[in-house]
Design a protein around this nucleic acid. Structure first.
Lengths: 101, 101
DNA sequence: TTGATAGGCAAGTGATGACTTGCCTATGCT
DNA sequence: AGCATAGGCAAGTCATCACTTGCCTATCAA
C-alpha cells in the first residue's frame, strides 16, 4: 500500500514547498533545493534535513532521482497524486436543479 | 492557509478510512462510523478517538456536519481535494513530440 | 595526491499527534 | 421524572517524526 507513503509525504509543509520548487524547475540537485528553501522561503534547515525530506518524497514516488557523476538530480512526478482524486471522486458533475431539496 | 489542515487530515490512515466510509454512505452519525470502523475494518478505537478524527476532518473542510435533534450527521465534501491537483498539475497533457529536446 | 564539492549514514533530541479514560451536557422515550 | 442514547470537553500517555550533529564515501579539478 503506497497510499501511506504518499499522504505521509504530503503531510509536511517543507516537503510541499520542495514539490513546489520542483514544479517550477525539475531536475534540481540537493544543494540547489537547499538554496531555494533558504533564499525564497527563509527556511533555515540543514542539508541533511532536506535530504531526508527527499527520501520521503522518493518513497512516495513523488520524486525520482537520477545520478550523474557526483550530482544527483531530482525530478518531480505528479502521477501518484492521481489516486487521491480517484479514491474520493467528486459526487455529481453539475446537477441541473437544486441537488438537496 | 487551509492546506496545512487538509494535508494533516489526510495523513492519518484511520481518517482516510472514515472518508472512504462517508464516500460509501454520506450523512452518518458518530456511532454509525464507529460501528463501521470496528465491523468492516477491525479498528478498535474509542468513540472519542473517532470524534477527534472527525474534528480534524471538519477543520480541513473534508467533512461537514449538521445537527438534527440529538443526532449529528457527517457529510463528505471532496471539494478541498481539488487544490492538490491544482497545486502540482500534470506536466504535459500528451505531447506529440519529445517535450524536452 | 590534495583539496573542494556533492552526497550518505547513524544516533540523539524535542515536539507534534493519536488515543484513552473520566466526567459532563443534551435530546428523546416510557 | 427517570433512564438510555448521542455527543462533547479535558487532561494525560506513548509513539512517531522532523531536525541536528558528527563522521564517512565518491567524484572532479588543480
Amino acid at each position: 500500500m503506497v497510499a501511506e507513503d504518499l499522504f505521509k509525504a504530503l503531510a509536511d509543509p517543507t516537503r510541499r514547498i520542495i514539490l513546489d520548487e520542483l514544479t517550477e524547475k525539475s531536475g534540481q540537485t540537493l544543494f540547489e533545493i537547499c538554496g531555494r528553501l533558504s533564499m525564497k522561503h527563509q527556511l533555515t534547515i540543514s542539508r541533511q534535513g532536506v535530504s531526508q525530506h527527499l527520501a520521503v518524497l522518493d518513497a512516495a514516488g513523488l520524486v525520482e532521482s537520477r545520478r550523474e557523476g557526483r550530482y544527483k538530480y531530482h525530478d518531480l512526478n505528479t502521477a501518484p497524486l492521481r489516486q487521491i482524486a480517484e479514491r474520493w471522486p467528486a459526487p455529481e458533475p453539475p446537477g441541473p436543479e437544486e441537488s438537496t431539496p
